[in-house]
């Protein structure tokens, strides 16, 4: 019995060895350069699982949750701005939102109406300056009108979105990009960009406290031009 067992083991070992040799000999070594040439301009993101469909996720929450959320939660800018210009921290504590305290700027969900007093479409990150009602002829805020939108104000204003629910910061970033993309498509793509100067606009949207600045840079969730 013993000897049969041993020869059986040996037989299995031989098969394993054979498979190994076969497997190794059938491998081709592909140099790294070829791969990076293929991916020129886009490198592999090493831990992105690739299963997260950001656009789908964003589309699913946009109409159902994001738009109603802003309709309900937006604070009139005329209430916020006097506090904001005096003390951003105090404005944040009273009116702002952020998921955690340290290392994150405050986000504000706001609404307002006013006149367009400047149009900057030179940059692809185009903006309009808005003078809020009651108008005094000076700009109170800039409103992003794309096609490039800076920041992640919309994502970071949503209290039903938590970073902990995402696998990693890339997925979390993709969500923000997808939300900004919807803004470009649903909110700002139909604007008559050459004829905005002097028009009256009403909007809801979000802005985030910027580094060393009191600029109010709103990403719109809804925007009407009269």
């Amino acid at each position: 019995m013993k000897s049969i067992n041993r020869s059986g083991d040996r037989f299995i070992a031989q098969i394993v060895l054979f498979i190994c040799i076969f497997a190794i000999s059938s491998c081709t070594i592909v140099p790294d350069e070829e791969k990076s040439e293929e991916n020129d301009g886009k490198i592999d993101i090493y831990f992105a699982s690739g299963t997260f469909k950001a656009d789908e996720y964003a589309e699913n929450i946009w109409g159902k949750r994001v738009v109603p959320f802003f309709k309900e939660k937006s604070l009139p800018l005329e209430t916020l701005l006097p506090v904001w210009h005096k003390d951003q921290q105090a404005a944040g504590n009273e009116f702002g939102y952020r998921e955690k305290a340290e290392g994150s700027p405050w986000n504000f969900r706001v609404k307002g109406s006013g006149n367009v007093v400047a149009v900057n479409t030179q940059s692809r990150a185009s903006t309009i300056d808005v003078d809020l009602i009651p108008c005094d002829g000076t700009s109170d805020l800039v409103l992003q009108i794309g096609p490039v939108f800076k920041g992640s104000s919309i994502r970071d204003s949503l209290d039903f979105i938590s970073f902990t629910d995402f696998t990693n910061q890339l997925e979390f970033a993709q969500l923000s990009n997808a939300l900004n993309k919807i803004v470009g498509k649903e909110v700002t793509s139909t604007l008559d960009r050459d004829n905005l100067m002097g028009k009256k606009v009403s909007f809801t949207g979000a802005f985030t406290q910027l580094q060393d600045s009191d600029l109010v840079r709103v990403t719109p969730v809804s925007l009407e031009v009269e």
């Binding site: 998921e99 955690k100 290392g103 994150s104 700027p105 938590s162 970073f163 902990t164 995402f166 910061q169």
Partner: peptide
């Protein structure tokens, strides 16, 4: 605090 905390 939440488990995942992003530091800007």
């Amino acid at each position: 605090l939440p488990e995942k905390q992003l530091m800007d």
